[in-house]
């Protein structure tokens, strides 16, 4: 095995890591906000709002992310004159913005189902107690519903975050040189498929490992009660043992 080549490849790929992380982070944050809005629309009593949210989720979960990305990046390019007139062209011309838009819109659809589950699982009694204390609807949502729902939805949302990290690789199809893009280029140049694949895979596994730890820590921090914490600590320990 050629360790020098492995080392060099790893360093080359590592240089692209910030871009991968940037894409994943920005689109996850935008997507989470979108997911919350969609979930609230879906649960709202206004029928048009919930219908729009349902249609959005149906459309974005029923089509491949790649075609959503191409539709935004290449498809909207067809309307360049109109977009230029509206001043939106600098946004749609940039592959990075388009990737973030596609990833965020996609994860918002999947995430909204998770958030909806979390909101629905908030105990009725907690809301009633908040009403009894005289909390206004806004305060109730901010202090009672949202924290509880976040805690319930977090484990499932962690999976969605991992999916997002993996999905950033699609950016390579629209000329962005993130980790997968560089790996593909190196493979096409050198044909040393196995070594390059191993390095790229190691980087993604590392990101996802750190990510699961972070989600677990966040969950621990958000559960002030002792029992939940103890269970989480146990999960954490066994997971460390499994991966070590």
């Amino acid at each position: 095995m050629d360790f020098r080549f492995l080392g060099e490849t790893f360093m080359t790929l590592l240089a692209a890591l910030p871009l991968t992380l940037y894409l994943a982070l920005v689109s996850s944050i935008c997507g989470a906000l979108g997911a919350l809005v969609l979930a609230l629309m879906r649960l709202s009593s206004a029928r048009p709002l919930s219908l729009i949210a349902r249609a959005y989720v149906f459309v974005f979960r029923g089509t491949p992310l790649l075609i959503q990305l191409f539709l935004i990046y290449y498809g909207l390019g067809q309307f360049r004159p109109s977009l230029q007139m509206l001043g939106l062209w600098p946004f749609f011309r940039d592959p990075i913005y388009c990737t973030i838009a596609a990833l965020a819109m996609n994860t918002a659809a999947y995430g909204s189902e998770i958030v909806r589950g979390g909101l629905a699982a908030v105990p009725r009694g907690a809301v009633e107690a908040a009403i009894a204390c005289g909390m206004s609807p806004g305060l109730r949502f901010r202090r009672v519903v949202l924290p509880l729902a976040t805690r319930i939805a977090l484990p499932a949302y962690g999976n969605e975050l991992i999916v997002m990290v993996k999905a950033t690789s699609l950016a390579s199809t629209i000329t962005i040189m993130e980790v997968t893009g560089i790996a593909g280029k190196l493979i096409a140049e050198t044909y040393r498929t196995m070594e390059i694949f191993a390095c790229a895979a190691a980087i993604y596994l590392l990101i996802n490992f750190v990510l699961t730890r972070l989600v677990l820590t966040l969950e621990w921090w958000m559960s002030p009660d002792r029992t939940t914490r103890r269970v989480l600590e146990q999960i954490g320990e066994t997971k460390v043992k499994v991966t070590a």
Partner: peptide, 8 residues
């Protein structure tokens, strides 16, 4: 396999 992108 669940932790790496399918494109890879």
């Amino acid at each position: 396999l669940r932790g790496i992108p399918d494109l890879l």
